[in-house]
Amino acid sequence: MILSDLVDAAVYEDGRQLGFVVDVRLALDGPVTGLMAAPRIVGLLVSARTSTSFMGYERTGTNAPAVIARYLAYRHRGTFLVLWEDVRTVGGGDAAGSADARVELRPGFRRWSAALEQHGTASQA
């Protein structure tokens, strides 16, 4: 699977559409093969809106310029994190374009906060 198969995929629970995958949360706690651990998929971030103009505001501490931040936060209100374990099937994205991709969640899955804790500031080039 490539990540584009997941991003923008439509998300369903029991046939009912909940929204779209706007991002994929990863944690660097997978097998260590080099200097960095391989990123493990923690879960999917799901918004009722597609991710065209998300720009990261919803999930990080960035809140300026306030006008843009508030608008985007409002557009993406209700965005939640669903854990990878709660993903029942990922499909449709194999041969076709990602627009047809579809993610089915387990019935009774849990919604978690999409917020991303502020970690590390500017890493200088």
Partner: peptide
């Protein structure tokens, strides 16, 4: 959600 042990990154 409980914070994972490793650093957290959003792919996009």
């Amino acid at each position: 959600h409980l914070r994972p042990a490793g650093r957290v990154l959003d792919a996009r």
